[in-house]
């Protein structure tokens, strides 16, 4: 087991966590800053290029990157021995850096929950990947949009809390 906390393995896990996080938040920002604002400007006849081709592929990498980020991050915090103290916001050891990373971890966990249990099920309905009555589609699209916006909002303090811990 000591092999798993070898400094190089710890570094390697951090690298996997950061790469997964770039894939996840990069695609989240692509959806919010590029795809969603562009949809009204695309003629209806050309919209299937987004909804049938690009969005399903982007969503595939988006949701698996979210899961990968969470798993490597939790492994990392376990390797460094602060997983429980960080998840309890540093109150066990009165550590500001554990509180900081703990805030980031909780925001990340909430975001990953949104991806898998709100955004993805609703996007499947919107994109026609699962059967859904036409009248339910606007509600599903709205839920997916709000959860995606909420995640964009949380990505700002989440990344701050994650990175700021290294300042202390």
């Amino acid at each position: 087991m000591t092999f798993l906390t070898d400094p190089y393995i710890v570094f390697f896990v951090r690298w996997l966590h950061v790469m997964s996080g770039i894939m996840w938040i990069g695609l989240l920002w692509y959806f919010n800053f590029v795809q969603i604002p562009s949809m009204p400007k695309i003629p209806d006849a050309e919209k299937p290029a987004i909804t049938k081709v690009i969005a399903p592929t982007a969503l595939f990498w988006f949701r698996w990157a979210a899961l990968s980020t969470i798993i490597w991050g939790l492994i990392q915090s376990w390797q460094l021995g602060y997983i429980w103290d960080a998840l309890s916001l540093g109150f066990q050891t009165k550590s500001a850096s554990h509180m900081s990373i703990g805030f980031g971890m909780w925001m990340g966990l909430i975001m990953a929950f949104n991806v898998w249990f709100i955004i993805w099920p609703n996007q499947q309905k919107v994109l026609g990947l699962v059967a859904c009555p036409a009248e339910e589609k606007p509600k599903a699209a709205r839920m997916a949009l709000l959860a995606s916006r909420f995640n964009t909002m949380l990505s700002i303090p989440m990344s701050y809390a994650m990175v700021a811990v290294h300042l202390r």
Binding site: N32, F33, I36, P37, G90, K94, S95, A96, M99, S100, F103, L145, L146, R149, F150, T152, M153, L154, S155, I156, P157, Y160, A161, A164
Partner: peptide, 30 residues
Amino acid sequence: MNNPLQTLQGSIILGIVITVIVDLIVRYTF
């Protein structure tokens, strides 16, 4: 006026506000 979360600009501003609040909590708790 829509809920601020429905606009991208609103969610960015709220995100920055939450960042400052989180930073102040962490900075002055311990």
